[in-house]
């Protein structure tokens, strides 16, 4: 959960990229590191094993300082997707403010998506969080692959869930990554505003929140 230090006027937030193994969570984060140009951006920390699989997590800190003086930090984490790292996944997921679930669009990976999504719900419950009320974006990645399920089918399948519409991405090509992140920021803002009066006390409205945290290099936001 978000952590607010009144003495320093500092708000720490945590967003976790969750999903099955090899669905592109680390790629999402690396692209964000390249593409984003927020007010403040730290070093991307990647803890992978020799064969490029995430062992512990990846982490990218970004931040903004409002004119009223709020120091807002957002740490983006990825979890290891492989089944056997469940306790690590749970530790990283704890106290998350928002989750981006990165699913694999390939037809052959749908079972893995479902298993990972169940695992997310399960771990959230164990950590005392409710998947229905947590800001959550579902991203279908790897849209560039030939056997990706078509968009209409996917959107129809998820239409009745609280997470519709889905976000689509081709993270390797940098497509849809920033958009997914923005979608999450838009779902996250109302929750934070309710709790910390971002607009009222700190002068950050939804538009500024999203714009300042997700300013991109290639297409400067209006």
């Amino acid at each position: 959960m978000a952590e607010y230090l009144d003495s320093e006027r500092k708000l720490n937030l945590k967003v976790v990229y969750y999903g099955p193994a090899l669905s592109g969570k680390t790629t999402n984060l690396m692209q964000l590191h390249t593409l984003l140009n927020p007010q403040r951006k730290g070093e991307l920390m990647v803890l992978e094993t020799r064969d490029d699989r995430t062992l512990f997590f990846d982490m990218l800190p970004i931040g903004l300082r409002s004119q009223e003086g709020l120091d807002l930090r957002l740490k983006l984490y990825t979890v290891p997707g492989q089944v056997q790292h469940d306790s690590t996944r749970k530790a990283v997921l704890s106290r998350a403010d928002g989750v981006i679930f990165v699913a694999d669009s390939q037809l052959s990976q749908q079972d893995n998506n479902a298993t990972a999504f169940d695992n997310l719900a399960d771990n959230l419950q164990k950590l005392g969080m409710d998947i229905e009320s947590l800001p959550l974006v579902v991203q279908f990645n790897k849209r560039d692959l030939p056997d990706a399920i078509d968009e209409a089918t996917l959107q129809a399948r998820w239409a009745q869930t609280p997470w519709s519409p889905l976000s689509l991405a081709s993270a390797l090509n940098g497509e849809g990554v920033v958009e997914s992140f923005r979608q999450l920021l838009r779902r996250l803002y109302p929750v934070l505003d309710r709790e910390y009066q971002l607009a009222g006390r700190h002068g950050i409205d939804a538009e500024a929140f999203v714009r300042q945290l997700s300013a991109a290099h290639e297409a400067p936001h209006a």
């Binding site: 070093e43 920390m45 803890l47 062992l55 512990f56 306790s87 690590t88 530790a91 990283v92």
Partner: peptide, 24 residues
């Protein structure tokens, strides 16, 4: 410091999960 922290974070996380697993 980045590399020191990387090791430190991994070690701490490993410790956390090991303790959680042990408790479980």
């Amino acid at each position: 410091l980045l590399f020191v922290a990387k090791y430190r974070l991994a070690a701490n996380l490993h410790n956390d999960t090991t303790e959680a697993s042990f408790a479980e």
